[in-house]
């Protein structure tokens, strides 16, 4: 297994970098999109409620792989030419944003309702109250679950391997299919995933404990 690192360290490193890059980009955008739809559900508007609900349910109930392959295979033919990395990252963003929307929504609900009323009574608009009073508190509640979403995202980014996204899984797969040393290559790839996910996972558990 050490020999896998020695002989293919370069390729694995490229994959490792791409996996991290893709996860960070997807986290950033899915936070924005997810929070937006979460707010949709908090706004007193039936129309926005429905849009938010539909978006969340659609992307939560379709496999990420199907979404990613759609962006890789279909979108470039009819809409705009994008490569595998981009297609995979877009798929990952949309998929994860639905979960983040649910998480943030729960966070908003956890903030005392009286706070919103109080803020409104003090003359803030709904959006102002949301931005300055509710969301900052809600995000404190949701940091551990969001961290877990990020861990999921790193793991889920492995679907980039299906769309030639040059991520860690793709690189590992390429090494395995040329050296045929499947056993050790996949273990090496697994270790590299754990380097990212395991410390994060323990840190989130620590945060959860601290918040209790």
């Amino acid at each position: 297994m050490i020999s896998v690192f020695q002989q293919h360290g370069q390729e694995l490193l490229v994959g490792f970098g791409n996996t991290l890059l893709c996860s960070v980009i997807a986290l950033f955008f899915s936070l924005i999109i997810g929070s937006t739809f979460a707010i949709f559900e908090a706004v007193p508007s039936r129309f926005l409620h429905i849009i938010g609900r539909v978006y969340i349910e659609v992307f939560r109930n379709i496999p990420l792989l199907v979404i990613g392959m759609f962006f890789y295979a279909v979108v470039p033919q009819y809409i705009v030419s994008i490569d595998g990395f981009t297609a995979g990252t877009i798929g990952l963003t949309l998929y994860t944003s639905a979960f983040i929307a649910e998480t943030v929504r729960a966070g908003i609900q956890a903030v005392d309702e009286g706070q919103m009323e109080g803020a409104r009574a003090n003359g803030l608009t709904f959006m102002q109250a949301m931005r300055h009073i509710i969301l900052p508190q809600a995000f404190r509640y949701v940091i551990p679950p969001l961290g877990n979403q990020f861990i999921n995202m790193v793991k889920n980014s492995s679907v980039l391997a299906f769309v030639a996204g040059f991520d860690l899984m793709y690189q590992g797969d390429m090494i395995a299919s040329t050296t045929f040393d499947t056993f050790n290559t996949y273990i090496a790839v697994g270790i590299l995933y754990l380097v990212i996910t395991l410390p994060l996972s323990y840190y989130m558990r620590y945060l959860e404990k601290k918040m209790d």
Binding site: I151, K155, N156, S157, S158, V159, A161, M169, G172, D173, A176, T182, F183, Y186, I187, V189, G190, Y193, L194, T197, L198, S201, Y202
Partner: peptide
């Protein structure tokens, strides 16, 4: 903890090919 923090795709690969 080890298994939870690995991609399922990797486990599937490993089970079938490793």
């Amino acid at each position: 903890d080890l298994i939870r923090n690995l991609p399922l795709l990797l486990l599937i690969f490993f089970t079938y090919f490793g």
